[in-house]
Every structure is written in C-alpha cells, then in structure tokens.
Amino acid sequence: MRKQEFLTLLDKYLNGETSIEEEELLSKFHATYRHHEHLDDSFFTEDLRLEILSKIENRIGTHQVKLYKWRHWAAIAAAILITLSGITYYYQRWNETTYQQIANNAENVLPGKNKAILRLANGKVISLDEADIHAHTILREQGLTIQRNKSGQLVYIIGNEQNTNAMGNNTIETPRGGQYQVILPDGTHVWLNSESSLTYNIDFKKQRKVHLKGEAYFEVAKKTVPFIVQNEMQEIRILGTHFNVNSYQDEAYSQTTLLEGQVEISALNNKNQTILMKPNFSVTTNNTSGISKQSEADIAAIMAWKNGDFHFEDQKLSTILRAISRWYNVQVDYNSLPNTHYTLQISKHVRLSDVLKMLEKTGPVTFQYNEQMIHAVKQ
C-alpha cells in the first residue's frame, strides 16, 4: 500500500466515510502487523508517522477522562504506529521528564502470550508455550490422548477404553502474562484469560463440571448432560451456549455474561436465589454479600480480552490497572491511585508503555514505572 493511499483511507475511516471494502483493506494491513510479517521500513518514515498521529489526535479531540470514545481502528492504528516507530510518541501536554521515565522502563515490558501449565491427574506437570507451535502429542495412554494442535489449542481425545491411572482431575493454569485455549473431552471450547485456572475431571460421560478461578469464555458443546461451571460465588448450569465468566478473587464482583443460549445461575451461599439468564445480559454477584443481580451487558467491552483488546467503558482506574497488571505481569501501587473513571480501548498486543501513554492522554494522571511497579501521580 502506498503512502498516499494509506493516508486517504485513514482520513476516510476517521471521518466515518469508508466502505466495507476499504475497511477490509485496512483490516488486512492491521492483520499483517499483528502477525509480525515483514513491513517496509522505508514506508514508515518519521514524517509519515507524525502525519498519521496528527490525524488521529485531530479525530480524538481534547476532552478529559472520556477522551477515548473513538472507534476500534483509531486505537489500533495508533498502537501500530507506536510499536513500529521506536521513536518518541510526543504529545504537547505531556511533561518530557515523565515521558522519559515511562519510555526508559515500561517500553521494555512486552505483552502476554499463549502459555500455561497443565497438571495431570497422576501429578505430572507439563509446560505449554507458544514457542512450540507444531502439533504434537503430550500424553498417550490407553483410552486417552492429549494433543496440542497446530492452532496451539489443547485437545483431549477419549477412546472407548479407559485407564484409571490417566483419568481424574486435570488443571490448566495460565500465569500472569499468559492465556490459553483448551478443547475439553466433550468438545467444549474454553478460552482462559491471564492468571486463571480451570479444573475438570476428564471423564465427562458421567458429569460435565469444571471449577474456574479467574476469567474464561466458554462455547459449550450441546449434550444431554448439563455443563456446570463453579467459581467461588456462583454455580452456572447450561446445556449448550456461549458465555463469559469473570471471577477474579481480587475483584469486588463475580460476573457471568450470556451471549447466546440459556444459563441458570445460583449463588453458592444462597441456593434459594436462582437466576435464569437472558442473552446479552450479565449476572453480577457481590463477592462479599453474595447478592446477585441481572442487567444488560456491554458485550463489546466484556469480550474484548478474548478478541485481543482492552476495552473499558467508564471504569475505575484501579479496575483497569488490575487487568493491565495481569496481562503484563507487573505490580501496581494502588495506594497512589485517584478515584477516577476512564473509557479506553487499545490493542493488548502493544507494549506496556503504549498503554500507559494512552491512559495519560485520557485523564489527569501521569505514570511512573520502575522495579516492575506502576505508580500513578495525579496532575
């Protein structure tokens, strides 16, 4: 794509004038970046980068706190250019010293990747890392095969014969800075977010039940046996549906969001409270009181993590930074945080420094990063 063609398309997109075909062309350009294919460095000259950033900033405006209610591609375009440039991403309002403090440290913090630990019933521990992308067999015993396919997903294959040594509870754990996908023995597909774990008995013929810590998205295979997801506060029963569960223990609430199908939720400390969920709604359970309520969900924001983005609508800064800390495997000084709400959308595939820069531009807070700790200073 030539320079002028790209600038013309970007102008049209930021003005909401692009056709479907033109947006597909921009999407292909983004996909090339996301897969780290070769890009012509001579195309991304400093003048071009600054010109595009100027267009993006003109589109964004100069509002406070809710500055980033702008469309997905504007955030991605900025992220692409920040990552490719390796030069100063300068905004007139920023304090130069603060920028250098961030750039000299946080720019070295890379985003998370596909990695996890698999704990088998026999006590064996297997490391799962995206560095080995080739399909191979992890375990093969009588009646059971565990493979990692070419897409990096963990797949269970159960035969007619069963080996009691192989069957039993398995746990897949993602660390801070990790995520992973697993296809369970019944065909249910699970996306596991960072710092999460899923425990399940691989004999799904008798009972389809898993225990979740953290966050996961489920596409449940339709069977006559109910599929049950249990976390510390909720029990979720379904037959076949798509839903997301967020149950981090350091959050104030556990939340289940239904995309399609039908889900029944019971609070574990109040079996008399059962909620039949509607699609595009969320059930939120207070992790202290156990009280649950159902409300309409912001599906785009809730599912952003699975689609490779951060997306927060009018969220507390502390909530945003907890998600960022899990993905980048860093710590946050929560004592210094102001009680400020933000709206933010940006790719999860950029460096930590890029996210902090976006937050600085969005609200009245500057950030310092040192010794794996994010500190916030109110302006």
Rank of each mutant, 00 (worst) to 15 (best):
L10E: 00
E17I: 11
S19M: 01
I20K: 13
E22R: 03
E24K: 14
A31C: 01
H35F: 05
E37V: 03
D41E: 10
F43Q: 14
D47K: 09
D47P: 04
D47W: 06
L48F: 15
R49C: 10
L50M: 09
L50E: 13
I56E: 11
I56N: 08
I56W: 12
E57R: 15
N58E: 11
R59W: 15
I60C: 12
Q64P: 09
K66A: 13
Y68L: 13
W70E: 13
R71W: 02
A79F: 02
I80H: 06
I82W: 08
L84T: 08
S85K: 08
G86S: 11
T88G: 12
Y91H: 14
R93F: 08
W94I: 06
W94A: 03
Q100I: 13
A106K: 10
P111A: 05
G112K: 07
K113E: 14
K124G: 03
I138K: 08
R140T: 10
R140N: 13
G152H: 05
I172Q: 07
T174M: 05
G178V: 02
G178N: 03
Q179H: 13
Y180I: 02
Q181Y: 11
V190Q: 02
L192I: 15
S194Q: 05
S194H: 05
S196G: 02
S197I: 09
Y200T: 12
F204N: 05
V210T: 11
L212H: 14
V220K: 09
V220R: 07
A221R: 06
K223I: 04
K223W: 02
K223T: 06
V225E: 13
F227E: 05
M233A: 11
E235I: 07
I236N: 09
H242N: 15
N246D: 11
S247A: 15
D250V: 00
Q255C: 07
L258F: 04
S266D: 07
N270W: 05
N270K: 14
K271V: 12
N272P: 10
M277T: 02
K278P: 00
I291D: 14
I291Q: 15
S292Y: 09
S295A: 14
E296P: 01
A301K: 04
W305H: 13
N307H: 09
F310D: 01
F310P: 01
F312Q: 06
T319M: 00
R322C: 01
A323W: 01
R326F: 02
W327S: 03
N329W: 07
N329A: 15
V330T: 12
Q331W: 08
L337W: 08
N339C: 06
T340P: 03
H349A: 07
E360A: 10
P364E: 13
F367C: 08
Q368G: 14
Q372V: 06
H375L: 11
H375A: 08
Q379S: 05
